[in-house]
Design a protein around this nucleic acid. Structure first.
Length: 177
DNA sequence: AACACGATTTCG
DNA sequence: GAAATCGTGTTT
């Protein structure tokens, strides 16, 4: 069994609409080095789409601020923020510049839960704004895995108005999560 | 300067 | 069901 060398996702993958990027990230590999420099790979099994200023569940619906700034840039950068004072949420920016969108990585194979996966991988605020297309610290690879998936409403956004809180913009690999 | 709250997790 | 815990946006 030869191990397949993953190909790094390029700019074009990320600059599409978040409703295409979020499901397409399922099965892809988050690749980074651990504290000893060893390369680690984690397969994405669950994502959620946050789509523009009109999406009341998206942080960018509050407008352009120091926190949401990166979402207004072209896709491919990392958006991370601290929630409840203790958990870092790992997001991937999508779309063209000027259209704020991001994909929340909700689960990796073996690491269900956005807060738990960040803790396991050591993801924190220092990753804010890092470009996944050019960074040598963290990137996303494709090894040809294209899993079947299901959709569902997003979690933890009850505060958002309709129709946004009812959108089926959560994507889960079938038989996982 | 003070306040309210959250794209979660864990414990009781 | 409720606490933990703090950066960010909003109000004073």
């Amino acid at each position: 069994m030869d191990a397949i060398t993953p190909t790094r996702l390029g700019r074009g993958f990320y600059t599409r609409d978040v409703l295409e990027v979020a499901p397409d990230l399922l099965g892809k590999l988050v690749i980074l080095a651990d504290s000893e420099g060893k390369e680690l790979r984690y397969r994405i099994t669950e994502t959620e789409a946050y789509r523009g200023e009109e999406d009341r569940a998206c942080h960018a619906s509050k407008g352009r601020t120091s926190r949401t700034e990166i979402m207004f840039h072209a896709g491919g950068s990392i958006y991370v923020y601290l929630i409840y004072g203790m958990y870092w949420m790992f997001n991937v920016v999508s779309s063209e510049a000027g259209i704020p969108q991001a994909v929340l990585i909700r689960a990796l194979e073996g690491y269900p839960g956005p807060g738990k996966l960040s803790r396991a991988l050591g993801i924190d605020g220092s990753l804010y704004g890092i470009d996944l297309v050019s960074s040598d610290r963290i990137w996303i690879g494709d090894d040809g895995n294209i899993p079947a998936y299901i959709t569902a409403p997003r979690i933890g956004i009850e505060y958002a108005a309709s129709p946004w809180k009812e959108k089926d913009w959560r994507y889960l690999v079938k038989n996982e999560g």
